[in-house]
Design a protein around this nucleic acid. Structure first.
Lengths: 338, 338
DNA sequence: CTGAAAGCGCTTACAG
DNA sequence: CTGAAAGCGCTTACAG
């Protein structure tokens, strides 16, 4: 096994010795080249290249008192909603010279706390939280941690956040259904302990009430954002006496379950019943039929969150603490005239 | 804005002073508590708790010469194949006291190189590569980087790898189709510059040849693992004179495209034509119909890769350098009798 | 333009 | 069982 063996990698002292200069000069050549005479610089750079020298980032970070890394925390990276956001974060981070640490919480507050500690331990300069929850936020030590919230605000606190207007977007897609002539429009909810699931329910209801259409409990079926809950909700709605002609499902994943339930019942989408989702996950376009949904600007959410965190770390003026990014109604073939 | 302001966090010197001991004793209390007298230990721990002290991990890492982090590199985190592997890595890493840095390469060798540098810069102790490619592997400095390959071996090198037997699994699912009585079984390939796509093609061909069934070019349609390529390949296969009664698609995503093409042509799955995929991505079960496929032990791939990397870092005996994990044929409703 | 020196915050032989 | 001291590998005022 060669890895781990062999000569230790060269340090700045080795380079200084080889180039016949001080470590300060080597450091300046790498950090602030304009401060170094051209001739000296050339010589140092040549030595660096020949020796294959790479500065120890741990030492640099310790000295400069910045980790050069940020942490992004999600409930579950397997959920297709998150990866594109993380990608946006990473893309922006690269441009700013930061690395990205991954934190998966499995929806467990204890793990959430562990990740907070990681920032307190200075392994990361700050964190972007997508979980809508921050344990121990009353602790002053926690309040000192630079945090930006993405996608989900944390209730009761005014941390900087980048998000979408879930209520307005839900109302918009419901109005699309109304505009198609539907009058019995059901809703399959997300887990209502999550604020964004409640916001989507409210948006749906507001649009119906505004149009004078029924929005009572008989038009609502509970879901939890996952496929099986969509199947169950779809079956329940189809079994009701006066069955809906359209269903707005709180996210795309569970909409897929609703589609299965409808097909299994021998009905067709959108001829017999229209279905709309929310999120526009990568697969939504490949659904059968392709799903009408609300597109979230996931990439932009990630990039914006990173930019906001960077400003926070910089001590820049607070700019905007509550950024609301626009969504887009994507009309595909899963919705049609009543 | 409170973040970034306020008193700086306490250091080990502050705790030592407050507890009336040396920094060495504070450090020992945290790192090797058994070496410290119980009374002293209690006193130190109380002080630590009261002050809300968290050791600076950057300083610890510098001193101990280990970053306490590993890097996992993927082509594209948005690809539904990767997140579960990353989750496995992270899960194992947590148990071993490592953090996980995320590296997205967008299939760009330059970015791949940047991530290698990150390890050389000691920000990570080693890396797990899922891209099937390592730039500059002839460079001795690169050879010194602890690397474990997951899912995809790098051709021409014998780095430690954890993988599945793509050829055997492809043959197995093809035999399932043969067992159902199909005699014209087509294949939609992945991008053939990837070794695993070639292995799946070979497995398909081997099973057919073994059964004396046609396996010529007329039974093959090119794909690239994405949905649209599946749509195109499906259309092409349906248009051929003697159309297949079953299609083995090189991965689930493109199988979804094949399903769309079949439905769009007014045919039914599996009554008119059977379809099988590969990977068992989270959505495969929710396809319409649910997809017969090969399940890759993604979580185990991630966990095993982390364990192997840890052994490598430990300098433990090389154990096994080529770990082949078992796959599983998952039979769902997309395949049926010929 | 360059170097000597201090210091970032820890850990760990070494000595007692 | 504990402390004084060295040192991990850098960066950056400070002085010249």
């Amino acid at each position: 096994m060669s890895a781990g063996r062999g000569a230790p990698p060269p340090t700045i002292r080795d380079i200084a010795r080889l180039a016949g200069v001080s470590t300060a000069t080597v450091s300046r050549t790498l950090m602030q080249p304009t401060l170094v005479a051209e001739e000296t610089r050339t010589q140092v750079l040549r030595t660096v290249a020949e020796a294959g020298y790479t500065p120890n980032l741990l030492a640099r970070s310790l000295r400069r008192r910045e980790a050069g890394a940020i942490l992004v925390v999600v409930r579950d990276i397997v959920n297709p909603f998150y990866p594109e956001i993380i990608r946006g974060v990473e893309h922006a981070a690269r441009g700013l010279g930061f690395n990205v640490l991954m934190g998966n919480t499995d929806d467990d507050p204890a793990q959430e706390l562990d990740y907070l500690r990681l920032v307190q331990s200075r392994r990361a300069d700050g964190m972007i939280t997508l979980t809508g929850r921050i344990p121990g936020l009353d602790d002053p030590a926690v309040q000192r941690v630079p945090i930006v919230l993405a996608a989900e605000p944390v209730p009761g606190h005014d941390l900087p956040v980048v998000r979408i207007d879930n209520r307005a977007a839900a109302a918009e897609i419901t109005r699309h259904l109304i505009g198609l002539g539907h009058r019995r429009i059901a809703h399959v909810t997300g887990p209502l302990e999550q604020g964004l699931a409640r916001a989507r329910l409210e948006g749906w209801r507001a649009a119906l009430v505004e149009a004078g259409l029924p929005a009572g409990d008989e038009m609502v079926a509970p879901g939890d954002f996952r496929v099986p809950s969509g199947v169950a909700a779809g079956q329940a709605l189809l079994a009701r006496p006066d069955r809906p002609t359209a269903i707005f499902v709180a996210n795309d994943e569970s909409a897929m379950g609703v589609l299965s339930a409808i097909h299994a019942a021998g009905l067709r989408v959108p001829e017999d019943i229209s279905v709309a989702g929310f999120d526009d996950i990568p697969f939504a376009e490949a659904f059968d039929p392709p799903l009408t949904t609300i597109r979230q600007p996931r990439r932009a959410i990630g990039e914006t969150a990173m930019a906001m965190l960077h400003a926070l770390l910089d001590g820049s003026p607070p700019a905007e603490r509550d950024v609301v990014l626009p969504t887009e109604l994507i009309i595909r073939r899963s919705t049609g005239p009543a």
